[in-house]
Design a protein around this nucleic acid. Sequence first.
DNA 1: TTTAATGCAAAACCTTTGCACATCA
DNA 2: TGATGTGCAAAGGTTTTGCATTAAA
Lengths: 129, 129
Amino acid sequence: MKIRNTKASSAVIRILEKEKKPLDVEDFIGRLNRRKINVDRTTVFRIVNKLTEARILTRLEFDEGKARYELTSLPHHHHAICTKCRKVEDIKECNIREVKKNAENNLSFKIEFHRIELFGKCHECRSIY
Amino acid sequence: MKIRNTKASSAVIRILEKEKKPLDVEDFIGRLNRRKINVDRTTVFRIVNKLTEARILTRLEFDEGKARYELTSLPHHHHAICTKCRKVEDIKECNIREVKKNAENNLSFKIEFHRIELFGKCHECRSIY
DNA sequence: TTTAATGCAAAACCTTTGCACATCA
DNA sequence: TGATGTGCAAAGGTTTTGCATTAAA
C-alpha cells in the first residue's frame, strides 16, 4: 500500500499543517479549489481514507453526521467544541492516567488510544448575549 | 412539545433500560420487531430525535458514521469501545477536573458536558489471538 | 511498465421532510 | 377537537464502489 505524491494529496497535508482545526471533506474541496487544484469530491474522500489508513490523518467525529480530519503527528491533545459555532479548540492537558489504569484493571481493556471532548460555549459565543 | 406515550416510544425506553449498551436505530428496529411492534424506520428516527431533544436520550457517535443512543439518566460515565468487535463498556471514574479547569481558565471555554472515550481491545478480543 | 490515482456515474447508508391518515389526550 | 404520532414515498447529505482513463514511480 504505497501512497503517491500527487498534487491533491500533498496539498491536503499542507492545508492541515497550516490550519489548526480539524477539517471535513467539504472544507478540503474549498481550500483545494482556492489553490486552483480541482479534484472531484470522490477523490478527496479517497485521499483522506488512504491517509487515515496510513495513520497520517486521524478521523474525528463531533456529532455532526460527518467526519473531520487532523494530522496524527500533532502533539497529544483533545478538543473543546463550541456547541453553538462548532469552533474546535485544542486542549493540551490530559490527566486521565487513573481512568486508563482503572479501565485496564477492572475491565481488562487494553487501551490503544483515548479521546476527551469537552462541549460547551467558547468565549465569543458566550459574550454575544 | 409534549411526548405521547406510544407503544413504540415507551418500548424504546424499556429496551434501553434493559440493555446496557448504546443502541443504534437498526438495533431498535430489530428489538421492536421481536416484541411484535412493527414500526417504520422513519418513526424510530423520529422517536429517538424527540427523546433526545427532551434529554431523555443522549446521542453518541463512535466513528461509525451513525448515531447510537443511551439513557441520559444513567449515572455519569464514559465509554471503552473495542476497536475490533465494537463492544462498548462503561467507565465510571472520571478525574478530568484539572482538564476542565484548565480549559475554562486558559481557553475561556464554558464547559457544558464532556466525553471521554477509550478505544482499545476488550478482554475477549485480546484473548482470541 | 506496473501500480496507484482520478473522474464520472451510480449506488449505499444514514437521516430528514412532506403529506395524508391515524391516534392519543 | 386539537395536537401529536405514523407510514409511505421522496429526497438530502455523506460516503463508497465500479469502471475506464490518466498519471506517478
